[in-house]
Simulated scan of single mutants.
Amino acid sequence: MKTKLTRKVMASAVMGVAMSAMANALVAVPAFAQEAKPEHEVSFNIGGVSDYRYRGISQSRLKPALQGGADYVNNTHGIYAGTWLSTIKWTKDAGGSGEVEMDLYAGKRGEITPDVTYDVGVLSYVYPSNGLKKVAGFADANTTEIYGQIGSGPFYAKYSHSVTNLFGFVNSKNSGYLDLGANLDLSEGYTLNLHYGRQTIKNNTASSYNDWKVGVTKELVGVNFSLAVIGTSADEKLYYTPAGKFTGKTSLVVSAVKTF
């Protein structure tokens, strides 16, 4: 699911098949039935990334981060819920405290037509003891968004709308993020990941920006590896580390995630 935004994992489909045959009048071949898709599924994931980028901006001071989460899916109704955590640096760099981000989310997905899917839900980004509201020029870092996504084949369009202040920006409720992308099969297990995003921050026009990603993913030995080039149009004077490094610069990011 920070991709928080997108971030985020879900259960693969399993199709049921039943077969039976009679070899002759005396010997019967037993029927074989593939295990039915369970109504309830729980999965876990753990991984690492060379630089935790969310909407193009580094959350980890351009350094590696550890990440992991858990997800529940009800396959009958398309309902899901989960949590995801990552180590971070940005709240401390902004003058607050805390080194962990915890995401809590829930939603519903399904089909509008056989060729069009939907996904709607709510996502809260929690930064325990971040203390930013005590820092001049900042609001509390904790943020909640509602979102909706439409997909068709490998293409998708998603919009997220904040119902609180956005990631510490003062008076930024009702900010929005548009996420357009595609995950294209390249054969032999490789997938091309394309993304373009637009973050608008309410009453903070100078801080709004675009971001983009071109990447490739492949699963090897049960681990999902990703290699991506990520960049933004963010203002270097507004997004930087304590050492003065631009957190939205174009960079190569590598990640590895194991789901079980």
Rank of each mutant, 00 (worst) to 15 (best):
S12K: 12
N193F: 05
A70M: 14
K63D: 14
E41V: 13
G181K: 04
A206K: 14
W90G: 00
G82A: 04
P30Y: 03
F260W: 14
Y156R: 03
D93Y: 05
S226P: 00
I150T: 07
N165I: 08
Y72W: 13
G189M: 06
A70P: 03
N174I: 02
G110Q: 09
L62F: 10
G137A: 04
D103C: 06
D103T: 05
F246M: 09
I146D: 05
K89Q: 15
L184V: 15
S187W: 10
K2D: 13
Y105G: 03
L166V: 09
L62H: 08
G48V: 10
E41W: 01
G82E: 12
D115I: 01
Y196L: 14
A25C: 02
G82Y: 10
K108T: 07
N45C: 01
V254F: 15
F44N: 02
N204A: 13
G107K: 05
S208N: 06
T6M: 04
A81I: 04
A139F: 04
L194T: 08
Q59V: 02
K108L: 10
R55C: 05
F260G: 05
A33Y: 06
S50K: 07
S43G: 11
L184N: 00
W212S: 05
R7M: 09
Y240R: 11
T247L: 12
D140A: 14
G248D: 07
G248Q: 11
Y105E: 05
D93T: 08
V126A: 10
K134M: 05
I46K: 00
L85K: 00
V9S: 12
V216E: 00
A206R: 13
G153Y: 07
Y239T: 06
A228R: 03
S86W: 04
N24E: 07
K245M: 09
I46F: 12
A139P: 02
N193G: 07
Q67T: 14
I201N: 12
I57G: 04
N74E: 07
R55D: 13
A106L: 14
Y209H: 09
P114V: 01
T91W: 06
V163P: 04
